[in-house]
Nucleic acid binder design. Structure first.
Lengths: 245, 245
DNA sequence: ACCTGAACACCGTTCAAGT
DNA sequence: ACCTGAACACCGTTCAAGT
């Protein structure tokens, strides 16, 4: 299955093959030897295009974050800053859904992918244009956190029982949960019964993502309005008292 | 430096040594051979107390999450549900600050640490007692996400230049940033000038954490009030129209 | 029961050598 | 310049053997 090309290898081709390999077989399958094999080449050849494994992983992150740029470029601008930021985050999310290994990799790396700075920049610019101060914009970037890159730190893991819930197994687990964690069990049951198609699983992660996003944006908009009101009130007070500097 | 004990090894001791080793030398230093060496034993001895490396890593997570339970147990209950949840998240955060490798490890594992369920349970119970429906409680757990375990997905990485910012280097970086990402640069500068002690770094991660937390909690409280108002209005409408079921 | 030593199949990486 | 083969120091893990 090795792709044999007579064209010489390039860093781009190595990284593209790395992303494809991670998509297909998971990040653990991306070894120097394994990736080289996919490219019809020996492991040591990769060192002519990348300094080592660490650079390869950084390159994979950079490639994926770069895809966000392409995705965001297709967006139409929105009048409201919140709608604009919302669309950017959702665009990033569509990219991450194509590369489910990427959030974990990004989280485990210490360095910020350089391409991410450009993405944050456009988001901050949108917010400043929308009336947020740089201080609030700073806090907003922290608050949005990884959502700007299209993922949340999933505490409830991506379902290992992919593609559906075994109703019988779910029943068993519910029974077991009921005694240990009654509120969680009640919640799970309440949510299960409200679903049209229980085989899809009872956590609609897309809906959760959007709910959280709207929650944060709503809160930031209120903070923004407060800030504007306070500034106006202070300005009025300063003017009416005739204070100078 | 190997700790030689004549007492036989136990799983608890192995895990405690693993946590200590990760605290001291990082997660990468936790290898079967390395950990065994710290315990004054051969690598293969560990297999008598743990099935393998994967179980070791799961055990490390479980140990750390277990510490959250101990920390939460010292809390005094708060009247307001938001204050209560807030204290629980901050307690979890103090545990994670002791084990900076833990969030990355938790994020990279697919399974939810069993001890975390108990933690989520008490948080959900607090919220339900505070008036949230199970549905909203479900969404709240998702929204709080990893904050319930005391960390956020840090996009701006934990500062590698630990313990302060070199002002000269910072100036250089600012100059470089200014052309590429002007809004970010302006923000960084605005934040730097407002600081009492710039050597502490210009991102107060504790303040950011609390701001984000309060933002989410404030939004959830509004959603809670909306939900309560809607339910009351629906009830009133149903009663006044004499509708039954 | 608990621990050991040798061995196996992998990994990232160095180095000298090929064309 | 790009690629190779052998080798090195590691890793998790199996197995047969010790007490």
């Amino acid at each position: 299955m090795a792709v044999r090309t007579r064209q010489p290898l390039t860093q781009r081709k190595v990284l593209a093959a790395g992303v494809a390999l991670a998509d297909a077989d998971g990040l653990a399958a991306v070894t120097m030897r394994g990736l080289a094999g996919k490219l019809g080449v020996e492991a040591m050849s990769l060192y002519h295009h990348l300094p080592g494994k660490d650079a390869l992983l950084d390159g994979l992150v950079e490639t994926v974050v770069g895809e966000i740029g392409a995705e965001v470029a297709t967006l139409e601008p929105a009048a409201d800053w919140r709608e604009d930021v919302r669309r950017r985050c959702l665009a990033a999310r569509t990219v991450m859904l194509r590369h489910p290994w990427a959030p974990g990799l990004i989280g485990s790396r210490s360095a910020v992918p350089p391409a991410a700075y450009l993405h944050f920049e456009t988001i901050l610019a949108t917010m400043v244009r929308g009336g947020l101060s740089y201080h609030l914009g700073h806090r907003a970037l922290h608050a949005l956190g990884s959502m700007a890159l299209g993922f949340v730190q999933e505490v409830f893991s991506p379902d290992p029982t992919e593609g559906g819930v075994d109703p019988e197994l779910a029943e068993e687990q519910l029974a077991e949960m009921a005694s240990l964690v009654p509120h969680l069990a009640a919640m799970a049951e309440a949510e299960l019964h409200g679903l049209d198609d229980p085989t899809l699983g009872w956590c609609d992660s897309q809906a959760e993502f959007e709910f959280t996003l709207d929650l944060l944006l709503g809160g930031l908009e209120r903070a923004r309005a407060d800030e504007a009101r306070t500034a106006t009130a202070q300005g009025r007070a300063r003017r009416s008292s005739g204070a100078r500097r």
